[in-house]
Design a protein around this nucleic acid. Structure first.
Lengths: 235, 235
DNA sequence: CTATGTTATGAGAGTGGCTGTCAATAGCCA
DNA sequence: TGGCTATTGACAGCCACTCTCATAACATAG
């Protein structure tokens, strides 16, 4: 299950980044499974697994805290490792690169699920808009603030743009796949690709200015943008 | 004249990349100004300037050659410097980072000029499409191959995606500015931003698959994509 | 043409991200 | 309990990149 298929060849070239093709991206598991009888014998992941999850969460948490407090570039991996009480080696075992620690977007799968859950008679553009609006409406203020923080990091630190693109490429591909499945078209259909590209572009256009100016209204912008798209962008 | 305004703050944070805010990006000036009488006293840039231009060109040429021959990651700055007969220090004086050496897109300004040159009664979408088609039609096969090479590099090497985005952000901003000027709207107008975002997204969707499959027809794809956009992307 | 200021260059040392190896340790299973 | 294996830390090393300083190449005033 390669995350971004194009990356496949990179490893041949003795590349530095993107070495480990490990199974991260199931983090956020500080409180493990909420459902289990205390004395269970069954599915409990085993101490080892739980320890790993805790270590990963600790590293990520400390990293993001330090990034926020003193900036991304000014934070060294050694400092993160110290704060999380592991060795630098261990940091890289969990995250492959300093950038990766910021990569995981918890909202992304939610978005896709919400989109998929839209009734089939709603056209793709409104369906997408509704999904976005629903997800954002369901967030607590804290979650929104975290999201904005992450967004600002991603946008303002040049080194992190790379992960931002990768996320977008990934999302775009998911959009295409979903549409292809739903409409019974091939995944390399030009119109589907253009749709995904245009939608991603529009979403960025809607969200980016909001990072700087919190007074902007998401719902309003979202509606404006998608309506404009749907009219064929008359100018 | 900051190239990407958001970058402004980075230097405060003792960042690694993006240090030098130097005045490159007017490269490609091996043949200086084409207009001057041979014995001119006037505008000739002076030996120093010409030497610099030659050094820059040499570094870039050797770098791209080495990247093509042995891959981006497998090529060290030291090797590039050796090949160009300068010291590594000098490499960084000219390019700031190993990535920068791939950044400059000679076609970009041509595109914008061609777009601006479209008659004012043509709607923005067809104008943009025509501009792209014209530029591509004017390229020699060699130029096309070079462009594809660069595109493949930019897409397939993870570390270079960053410069790809920066280029896109820059282009997007130029599109917005041009439209804003032409239509007398503010540059932060949502519709303009969505337009730029969607167009960039669509262009990527059109071009990306062509890097892998040269049999695809640009003109055809371009028309299909923009027509689809203009119809409001019905699916 | 020389003296003097300016700018490009190379050498070298140092920082930090990242990789790979190895031995020690800690959870797992019989 | 003892042996197996996964995880870890210490350490050595590569490379991108930065800084400093002395030298050399050009520019220019006299």
């Amino acid at each position: 299950m390669t995350v971004v298929s194009r990356e496949a060849g990179d490893r041949l070239v003795a590349g530095r980044r993107w070495g480990h093709g490990s199974d991260w991206r199931n983090g956020a598991a500080t409180r493990d499974n909420g459902l289990m009888s205390e004395s269970a014998v069954v599915d409990k992941p085993g101490l080892r697994e739980r320890k790993k999850a805790k270590t990963r969460a600790a590293i990520q948490e400390q990293a993001l805290r330090l990034f926020r407090e003193r900036g991304y570039d000014a934070t060294t991996v050694e400092q993160i490792a110290d704060a999380a009480e592991v060795s630098p080696s261990t940091f890289f075992r969990y995250f492959g690169s300093k950038e990766d620690v910021v990569a995981y977007d918890a909202l992304d799968p939610l978005m896709m699920a919400a989109w998929r859950a839209q009734p089939p008679d709603v056209a793709p553009i409104p369906a997408f808009r509704n999904a976005m609006a629903q997800i954002f409406a369901s967030l607590t203020p804290v979650q929104i603030e975290e999201m904005m923080d992450r967004g600002r990091l991603l946008f303002s630190v040049p080194a992190l743009r790379q992960v931002a693109v990768n996320e977008m490429v990934r999302s775009g591909r998911m959009v295409v796949d979903e549409l292809a499945a739903r409409l019974g078209r091939p995944a390399d259909d030009l119109e589907l690709q253009v749709f995904a590209g245009a939608v991603m572009g529009a979403v960025v256009a809607v969200l980016a200015p909001m990072l700087d100016d919190p007074s902007l209204e998401l719902e309003e912008r979202l509606n404006g943008a998608f309506e404009f798209l749907q009219k064929g962008m008359p100018l």
